[in-house]
Design a protein around this nucleic acid. Structure first.
Length: 291
DNA sequence: AGCTCTTCCTGAAAGC
DNA sequence: TGCTTTCAGGAAGAGC
């Protein structure tokens, strides 16, 4: 499922051949994941693609109107979130169309930019340049850029479980279930630990492991565990490096204990019970104090 | 206010 | 064999 490394891989792929192209037309299938489907057809034909960037797990395609009056020529962003099963790919217009392909952007070089999404957990919307700052306000820090100090500020005071905070896009933008679990394993921290009970050293270890895991995953072009493929249809390879994610019952690569799975923050959370010791329960803490 | 749980969707895999 | 049930997960919104 697309998290930061997968979205980054897609963005890098699209950046190779999209800038400079003009969108000729828009064709739509199911549209329940699009904020304003009519606007796509009205505003996109004739626009030229300027650049492709990543905002957390969102893909932002910058567009400039072509041959329009200046008052209507504000730069526009086509924002795409891949959800769980979304794929954004370029294909020659005549190529066979996979099932669940719901958006087609015809390009001036004979290709199509296509959006395919089996479960339609994705999202698509248009944001004018003037609203892009507002759009980004809801997003937290970029995990590859956040300083240790800022990381400690955002995590150190919180009473939520650390796994829930890693998944919260308002704190860090881009981390999802796979990389949260892999980062916690690398840092030796149990997913259910309350963030503000983490030591300074543990926060530092987590800050470092998140960046290391994401960087390695980008290098291997992401994890293909279900439908994920990049903008050319290629699978990633980081799934072969997973140490805990979807490895329940298998031996820990570090200590050989069996990897376990529990639900934390409503999500499957994979961890090694020995390398990531469980937080003591309230009951156990009371007992410990009395004696 | 802060945190957790439920809901949306579909197909693969497990269960009977 | 074939049907039913369960599970996966991002993020909005409900609930506590």
């Amino acid at each position: 499922m697309p998290e930061l490394p997968e979205v980054e891989t897609v963005v890098r792929g699209l950046r190779v051949s999209l800038p400079g192209r003009t969108i000729l037309d828009v064709r739509l299938g199911k549209t329940d994941f699009i904020d304003d489907p009519v606007a796509l057809g009205e505003q996109l034909p004739g626009t030229q693609i300027l650049d492709v960037t990543r905002l957390g797990k969102f893909i932002a395609i910058g567009l400039a109107p072509v041959g329009r009056a200046p008052e209507t020529s504000e730069r526009l962003y086509l924002i795409v979130h891949l959800g769980m099963t979304g794929q954004l790919m370029t294909r020659p217009a005549g190529d066979a169309v996979p099932a669940h392909t719901h958006v087609f952007f015809g390009l001036d070089d004979g290709r199509e930019l296509r959006y395919t999404d089996v479960r339609r957990f994705g999202r698509m919307l248009l944001v004018p340049e003037s609203k892009i700052a507002l759009f980004q306000e809801r997003l937290g820090a970029e995990p590859l850029e956040i300083t240790l100090k800022e990381f400690c500020t955002r995590f150190g005071s919180r009473g939520a479980r650390v796994k829930a905070l890693l998944l919260d896009q308002g704190i860090l933008r881009g981390v999802g279930n796979i990389y949260a679990d892999e980062s916690l394993f690398r840092a030796g921290i149990h997913p259910a630990r309350i963030a503000r009970t983490l030591t300074k050293a543990q926060l530092a270890a987590l800050h470092k492991s998140v960046r290391q895991i994401l960087t390695s995953a980008i290098r291997l072009r992401g994890s293909s565990v279900s439908d994920y493929v990049d903008s050319d249809g290629n699978r990633g390879e980081f799934q072969f490096r997973h140490r805990v994610y979807q490895r329940e019952g298998k031996p820990c690569s570090r200590c050989r204990n069996k990897i376990r799975r529990v639900i934390v923050a409503g999500r499957s959370s994979h961890f090694c019970p020995r390398c990531q010791p469980a937080p003591r329960s309230r009951k156990a803490r009371r007992k410990g104090k009395k004696s």
